[in-house]
């Protein structure tokens, strides 16, 4: 009888194993022709067009200024400095679907974040913290990487699929927007996305003739000033540990012909003007 039981077990395993294999092969053949892979960032891209993303960015931005009352800083010297820095970076992005809009906000935090549609916000405190325009460029390059890799979109999609599942969203527009806003500024990217962005940023910096070591310099200063995760540095919360980022930035192989071109900006006076 034990022999029968064993045979039964084999039958069961063969049935379910075969079923699994059957569906795997079925899906494999079914999706082989389509270039998008489900659930991955390419799939998000497929699901959420660039136009929609840019529209959403506009809506969130309008909401943030009106309802959350974030103060956008208007200051000629820093605006033009930002334009100089960002346009040098932007020139090196191969093909971009985004028209970047970078804004400076009044905030006590050292903070930088992106919302969908290529909108980047940098806090005044972060600019004051940067020792050189190159360091600001490093932060910007990192944020640009989040935009180009569409991390914001995948984050929103992920958060909101879950929210919808648990019916958190009650349906009214303001509630939805407030949730969207909170998601974009508070919830963080995962470690993999951060590393991906760091690598992209270093590559972009190198192409733009800015030393990728600026990232290391920025984080060294953070360490020097002993800013803990929970103190002032909100945007670094989920980011890989500062030391490992310094290490990676220092280990990044810069090509032989690389020549850094410094920015022609009077950084000190720009900061004083803020």
């Amino acid at each position: 009888m034990l022999g029968k039981i064993q045979k039964d077990l084999i039958k069961l395993l063969a049935f379910f194993g075969g079923l699994f294999l059957f569906f795997y092969l079925g899906f494999f053949l079914l999706f082989r022709s389509s270039s998008v892979t489900w659930l991955t960032s390419e799939y998000n891209e497929h699901l959420f067009s660039y136009e929609k993303e840019i529209q959403l960015g506009e809506i969130i931005d309008r909401y943030a200024i009106k309802e959350e009352e974030i103060d956008i800083l208007k200051n000629r010297p820093i605006d033009s400095a930002l334009w100089v820095i960002s346009s040098r970076l932007k020139k090196q992005i191969p093909i971009s679907e985004y028209d970047y809009k970078i804004k400076i906000i009044e905030s006590e935090m050292i903070n930088a974040f992106t919302i969908p549609g290529g909108r980047i916000y940098i806090s005044k405190e972060l600019i004051l913290f940067c020792e050189s325009p190159e360091q600001l460029a490093a932060v910007l390059a990192h944020e640009i990487a989040h935009v180009e890799k569409r991390h914001t979109v995948s984050r929103i999609l992920k958060e909101f699929t879950i929210s919808l599942l648990f019916s958190i969203i009650s349906g009214t527009d303001t509630v939805l927007l407030s949730e969207l806003w909170k998601t974009t500024i508070s919830s963080s990217f995962n470690r993999k996305q951060e590393q991906e962005s760091d690598e992209y940023a270093m590559d972009l910096l190198e192409k733009s003739n800015i030393s990728p070591r600026a990232i290391a310099a920025f984080f060294r200063k953070l360490n020097r000033e002993n800013l803990d995760y929970d103190e002032k540095v909100e945007f670094l919360m989920s980011h890989p540990h500062n030391n490992s980022r310094i290490k990676r930035s220092l280990e990044y192989k810069i090509s032989n012909g690389f020549k850094p071109i410094p920015f022609d900006l009077d950084w000190k006076s720009i900061k004083e003007d803020l």
Binding site: F20, F23, F27, F28
Partner: peptide, 10 residues
């Protein structure tokens, strides 16, 4: 992901 979807069906 294909493996994951096959697993869901299973």
């Amino acid at each position: 992901t294909t493996l994951f979807f096959a697993y869901i069906v299973l």
